[in-house]
Design a protein around this nucleic acid. Sequence first.
DNA 1: AAAGACACCTGTCCGC
DNA 2: TGCGGACAGGTGTCTT
Length: 270
Amino acid sequence: MPELPEVETTCRGIRPYVVGYNVRAIIVRQPKLRWQIPTSLHELEGQKILSVTRRAKYILMESAKGTAILHLGMSGSLRVIDASLAPEKHDHVDIIFSTGKAIRLHDPRRFGAVLWTREDPLQHKLLCHLGPEPLSDEFDAMFLYKASRKRKVSVKQFIMNAQVVVGVGNIYASESLFMAGISPKIAAGRISLARYKKLVDAIKRVLARSIEQGGTTLRDFIQAEGKPGYFQQQLKVYGRAGEKCTVCKSQIKQISQRQRSSFYCSNCQK
DNA sequence: AAAGACACCTGTCCGC
DNA sequence: TGCGGACAGGTGTCTT
């Protein structure tokens, strides 16, 4: 499910119910997510949440004792609920607050994660090697251009590599490349600085617009308060194989790259 | 060092 | 209606 806009939307959704409040209890119904949920997570009980932030697609809930690191994987979502609401299938974790509200993690495929660290979360093994945030000033055309020299991977795989830049998932990779007029098949190292300028602008615009719309709901994504995102209505190529390109009316193509579907217009994207 | 395959898991959809 | 297979928004780890 979630790419960066969905994770950002989730972060913003839970923040008002979480920051400044005390954790009364944590219920773990299914500890086997991508990694086993550590028992040390219970150190968060009794703590006040100082901040909720996002790095890449990781959600960080900070307390004085340590930070919970949450990841939604492919199918995860967080909802704000009344703590008394009966859990349903795949409701694996509740973080219950003294207000009577709770944050509930629902994740059918269990590719998500809930971890705990007493150290600076940005130094955590999973976070310390990540590339820049796509919406930061650090992520610009020259950065991508330099990082891509001599790289033979396709540009689509390149921008989806979190060591290069975080937060560009399968939907927004296709959408950004369409907006920039770049074929997903081109080797990253053969793209000019001028074209990377277009690509960086496209990535920033697509992600920012999706965040404004509350993310993309394809199947089951819901925001923290239960609403869907609306950006899927603006997808130009993703999931539209065989349909007409909105610009030139050619048929949108679908190919597989590293076992992920890519969608593009072979007329608009060279 | 880079690139590719594979792993984790459940649900849904499509063709037969 | 049932069944097998492909596919789905992610990403760490292992092998070439």
